[in-house]
Simulated assay, not measured.
Amino acid sequence: MFGAGTPVTLRVSGSGRAARTRVELTDPDPQARPVPRRAAGTDESGRGLALLEAVALRWGVTQGYRTKTVWCEL
Results as ranks from 00 to 15, higher is better:
Asp43Gln: 12
Tyr65Leu: 05
Leu51Trp: 07
Leu10Asp: 01
Ala56Glu: 02
Ala56Tyr: 07
Ser13Cys: 05
Ala56Trp: 04
Asp27Tyr: 13
Gln63Ala: 13
Thr21Asp: 01
Trp71Cys: 01
Ala19Val: 10
Ala32Asn: 15
Asp27Ala: 12
Thr62Phe: 00
Val8Glu: 07
Asp43Phe: 08
Ser45Leu: 12
Leu51Pro: 01
Arg58Val: 03
Cys72Asp: 00
Ala39Val: 03
Arg11Leu: 12
Glu44Leu: 15
Val55Ala: 06
Ser15Ala: 11
Thr67Ile: 01
Arg37His: 02
Trp59Val: 03
Gln63Glu: 14
Val12Trp: 02
Thr26Arg: 11
Lys68Trp: 01
Leu49Gln: 07
Asp27Leu: 15
Ala19Leu: 08
Asp43Tyr: 11
Val55Ile: 14
Val55Phe: 08
Asp43His: 10
Gly5Val: 07
Tyr65Lys: 03
Pro28Thr: 10
Asp29Thr: 09
Pro34Met: 12
Arg58Trp: 01
Thr6Asn: 09
Lys68Met: 11
Gly60Asn: 10
Arg33Asp: 09
Thr62Ile: 13
Thr67Lys: 04
Thr69Ala: 04
Trp71Val: 00
Trp71Leu: 01
Leu52Ala: 09
Ala19Phe: 06
Trp59Phe: 06
Gln31His: 14
Val70Cys: 04
Val12Ser: 06
Gln31Phe: 04
Gly48Thr: 13
Ala56Leu: 06
Gly48Gln: 13
Met1Ala: 12
Trp71Gly: 00
Tyr65Cys: 00
Gly48Arg: 14
Ala18Cys: 06
Thr21Glu: 02
Ala39Leu: 04
Cys72Glu: 00
Arg66Tyr: 02
Arg37Asp: 02
Thr9His: 14
Leu57Ala: 13
Glu73Cys: 01
Ala50Cys: 03
